[in-house]
């Protein structure tokens, strides 16, 4: 239960936070909601010299229009997102996906940016962000850059985020008109994280699938876009047969995880099963 000691600052502005990060160098770590970081520190699995608390920075909070889509501050909590009428209206996928994360208490503290930055291979937000074609605004004392979520995750707990960077915003472009979305997951019963989670955005035009994004989490060492599923579906009629054929490719090219809850064979099969279910449901919702 007890953590090793560390220093702590809670800067008042993003610039101060960046300065703090720079000052403490590799020893420093950001903390937002703390719901990924503190459990690791309590197990003495993560050692941290100095924590920079960005959980309350106004610049990292809030939900605003972004070219018809939304920009969500990285330190916005799940609860704030779930309570947002804008999100409910534009991205019901986020509501569906985030509502099952952890529990009330976790959703009250955990942040979207924290989840993406942490790059836990079993967390839900990465799959949702992939399906939504999100991009991330990252800032360091040296400047700002935006990166696509697609390509952001490199491995378990490894992403393109540099140690001196703060994720400022998650930008989600408007989905195609009439798109249907869905998130389904197979939950690891003890931890509540996903053994398999599949997020889908799918739109049809003229009777064929004209847009599809499939984000998969839990299956491999990081969340990924199931591109073989997407390419098989594109241009198809989006019917059950097409979906089943496409879903068979859910884990193509992936080194599939294996643990006491789901071995490789089972997980692979579930990647297919839940991909099929999620695509079916997104297709049924597409108009």
């Amino acid at each position: 239960m007890s953590m090793a000691g560390f220093g702590y600052t809670r800067p008042a502005t993003l610039d101060e936070a960046l300065a703090d990060l720079a000052k403490h160098g590799p020893d420093a770590k950001l903390i937002a909601g703390g719901h990924s970081l503190l459990p690791l520190m309590k197990m003495r699995l993560a050692s941290v010299g100095h924590l920079v608390d960005i959980g309350r920075l106004r610049e990292l909070k809030g939900i605003r229009d972004w070219n018809g889509g939304l920009a969500i501050g990285a330190a916005t909590t799940y609860r704030e997102v779930l309570g947002s009428a804008l999100v409910r209206d534009r991205f019901p996928l986020l509501i569906e996906g985030l509502d099952d994360i952890g529990d009330i208490q976790v959703r009250n503290r955990g942040t979207l940016g924290g989840s993406l930055a942490h790059a836990d291979p079993a967390s839900d937000m990465p799959a949702l962000a992939l399906a939504l074609d999100a991009e991330l605004l990252l800032r360091s004392s040296g400047g700002e850059r935006t990166v696509k979520v697609d390509g952001f995750f490199h491995g378990a707990f490894v992403s393109d985020l540099h140690p001196d960077e703060v994720m400022v915003e998650i930008r989600i472009p408007a989905s195609p008109d009439g798109a249907g979305t869905s998130y389904v997951e197979l939950t690891q019963p003890a931890s509540g994280y996903s053994l398999v989670g599949v997020a889908v955005v799918l739109a049809k035009s003229g009777g064929t699938v004209s847009h599809v994004r499939v984000g998969v989490t839990g299956v491999a060492d990081h969340a990924y876009r199931a591109s073989a599923v997407e390419s098989t579906l594109m241009g198809s009629d989006g019917g059950s047969a097409a979906i089943a054929a496409a879903a068979a490719h859910a884990a193509d090219g992936q080194e599939v995880n294996s643990d006491i809850h789901a071995d490789r064979e089972y997980r692979t099969a579930m990647a297919t099963a839940f991909t099929r279910r999620s695509v079916e449901s997104a297709a049924a919702r597409a108009t």
């Binding site: 019963p189 003890a190 809850h261």
Partner: peptide, 23 residues
């Protein structure tokens, strides 16, 4: 339905916390 302590062959408790032992 859910609970079970799992050891590896070398005697490590794989279900060693509430993250892996399903309460």
């Amino acid at each position: 339905l859910w609970e079970g302590a799992v050891y590896s062959d070398d005697g490590q408790l794989l279900s060693g916390s509430m993250l892996d032992y399903a309460m």
